[in-house]
Design a protein around this nucleic acid. Sequence first.
DNA 1: GTCTGGACTGAGACTCAGTCTCAACTAACA
DNA 2: TGTTAGTTGAGACTGAGTCTCAGTCCAGAC
Lengths: 168, 168
Amino acid sequence: MAHLIKEIGRFQEFLQKQGLKLTGERTALLREIFSTHYHFEADELLFKMKEKGAKISRATVYRTLELLVKSGMVRRVHLGEDHYHYEHVTGNSHHDHLICTTCGGVIEFNDPILEERQHEICAKKKFTPTFHNLQILGVCDSCTKKGEQPDAPDRVQMIQTASLRLRK
Amino acid sequence: MAHLIKEIGRFQEFLQKQGLKLTGERTALLREIFSTHYHFEADELLFKMKEKGAKISRATVYRTLELLVKSGMVRRVHLGEDHYHYEHVTGNSHHDHLICTTCGGVIEFNDPILEERQHEICAKKKFTPTFHNLQILGVCDSCTKKGEQPDAPDRVQMIQTASLRLRK
DNA sequence: GTCTGGACTGAGACTCAGTCTCAACTAACA
DNA sequence: TGTTAGTTGAGACTGAGTCTCAGTCCAGAC
Ligand SMILES: [Mn+2]
Ligand SMILES: [Mn+2]
Ligand SMILES: [Zn+2]
Ligand SMILES: [Zn+2]
């Protein structure tokens, strides 16, 4: 309860700048998001809140996620599935993702050389980049060791990771 | 009519291998897809077929696109919007996309150095890549010259290009 | 502390891309 | 030309995400 004061403060500051308010629902969501790690879906977050007895509506979850993304405290990412995932931003650490199409696992990486090359490409095309999104799909080390074969690229492209579906 | 024989042949060969059939609807869709260029949406294709008087159902459009992707003749891409776009594959030319958040324009590029670096990253993580997807959002040269300012990254992330929406 | 206006919330209707079902149809091959 | 397995269209359905609006609540003013 005493924790995450800093994050709550940051969010409140952001809200106040636009004449918006910090409500109980918003703090509860922020606490949940920043107290666990990794990539989650909007409805997954809704479900977790319900489990904990916090009665927060779907609409509020989506509205709060939008605000958190605008504030820069949360990032919205594509992980090869046909809907968004979210992750909280801890440092200023931009990173991209390796996604295992077998186990659904996600490996994060940040490679300055890759980023630099992207800038060079943009410069060559006189394009001013503001944001980018890279997903590399494939098979992770532990799945390879278990003898999993990579899917053909077109299968990967069609199926993509339906990993989290099992939850339903 | 005499054109695109080669593509139709390739598709038929693919279909036959799985005991599937080349129908009038499938050839009509293939002709449409390969006779125009660039990135299109499924419903956009459906609409164009209707305009031309070909009465092809939504279901068939989606089913045919799926087959074309599996055959490797069509690629499904993310362009920053919240639904898929498609493009036909001409050579074996993999490429990625620079997407202008102001005018919705798309610039294609293929950079071997970038690709190579991605492989190095995967090797370091013992990850076997099969497929990747990179979108760089920003402002293109001509929009910059018109004095357009790039959106803040978080705005770009939230809004992404709603360009083709205007069609509706 | 209480007032008060504008912001916020929940319930549920709605949208929109994409999928599924099933009866009627047709391509392929003998 | 007949057989049969694959294909089609209409429309119901799904699931993520958005919108509306009446009732509620936060925050700054007093
Ligand atoms: Mn991440
Ligand atoms: Mn392209
Ligand atoms: Zn794995
Ligand atoms: Zn532009």
